[in-house]
Amino acid sequence: MTNQGVIKQFGLAIVLLAWTAASAAAFTAYISNEKGNSVSVLDTDTMTTVATIKTGDRPRGIEVSKDGKLVFVAVGDDNTIQMIDTATRKIVGELPSGPDPEQFALDPAGKLLYVANEDDAAVTVIDLETRKAVAKIAVGVEPEGIVVSPDGKYVICTSETTSMAHFIDTAERKVVANVLLGARPRAAAFKPDGSELWVTSEVGGGLSIVDPLTRKIVKVVHFAIPGLRPEKIQPVGINITSDGKFGFIHLGPSNRIAVVDGTTHEVVKYLLVGQRVWHGAFTPDGKYLLAANGLSNDVSVIDVAALKVVKSIQVGELPWGVAMAPK
C-alpha cells in the first residue's frame, strides 16, 4: 500500500469515527419517491434506509404530524393525501385534498392542512380532526409552493403562471395581498422569526426576499455556477436553519445546493449533491440537512456546521421530498 493509500484509509477512519460520534441521536426521516410510488424510511443514526412503504401514485409533498404519529404524503395521480401510521408503517387513511395535490403545509398548531391544487387554481383547507375539507380559496394559475407563517396568521401560496405570492389570512380564509415575483415562483419559506419570506423562482432565476410586513421584495438573490448554463440552475426547495443564519436553496438540475447567508443574503457556497436536487429537511437537532436527489435516487446528507456533504444514501426511484419525525 502506498503512503497516499494509508493516508486515505486513515482519513476515512477518522471521518467514520467522527460520524458515529456526531450522530448519537437517532431520528427518522421519510422520503417520498415520486416514481417509485413509495416512502423510504431512513434512520439518521445508521444513515441507512430501514423500510420502504408502498403508497399511491406519484407521491411528492410529505410532512409529519406535529405529534409524530402520522406521515402525510400527497399522491398527485391518485388525487389524495395519504396518511401513514409511523408506528405500524401502514396507510391508515386519506384526506380530501382536491385534485393533483403536490405541496401542502401544516399550521403551527398542527390542526389544519393547506394544500395547493395545481390544476385547479385553488388552495384547499383540511381540518385534520374531522378529516374534511373546510374551505377552498381561489388563487392564481398553477399554485405551487405553500407555507404558513410562524405566527399562523397567514398562509403564503405561490402561483407559477400568475407569478405571485398570495397572502391568505388564515382567520378570514381569503387572499388579502399579492406580491408579484420573478417568473414561475416555486417554493416559499419563512425565516423562523417570521421576519422574512423567501421565494424561489424557476424562470425568474433566483430567490426573492420579501418583507412580510410591507409585502415588498427587498432583495433578489441570483445564482451563477461557472460552466453551467443558466437554465440548469432552477431554484426549488428552501431550508432555513432554526437560528436563521443560513438558507439552503436546492438548485434542481444544477446538482447543487446554494448556501445563502441569512443576514447579508450573499451566496456563501455551492454544495455539490446528487442529480436534480429538489427538497430537503433538517434533523430535529439541526445538525444535518437531508436533500432528495430526484435523478440519482439518493439523499445527500449535509453537515450544517461544516457546510459539507458527508454522505449519500440510496432510497427509492425519483425521490422528491423529505420530512423529519420530531424527537
Binding site: N178, V179, G182
Partner: peptide, 13 residues
C-alpha cells in the same frame, strides 16, 4: 430588472 421588480410590488386586492 431588479429595480423594476421592487417598484412593481402590487397593491392588495
Amino acid at each position: 430588472a431588479l429595480a423594476g421588480c421592487v417598484a412593481l410590488s402590487l397593491a392588495d386586492s
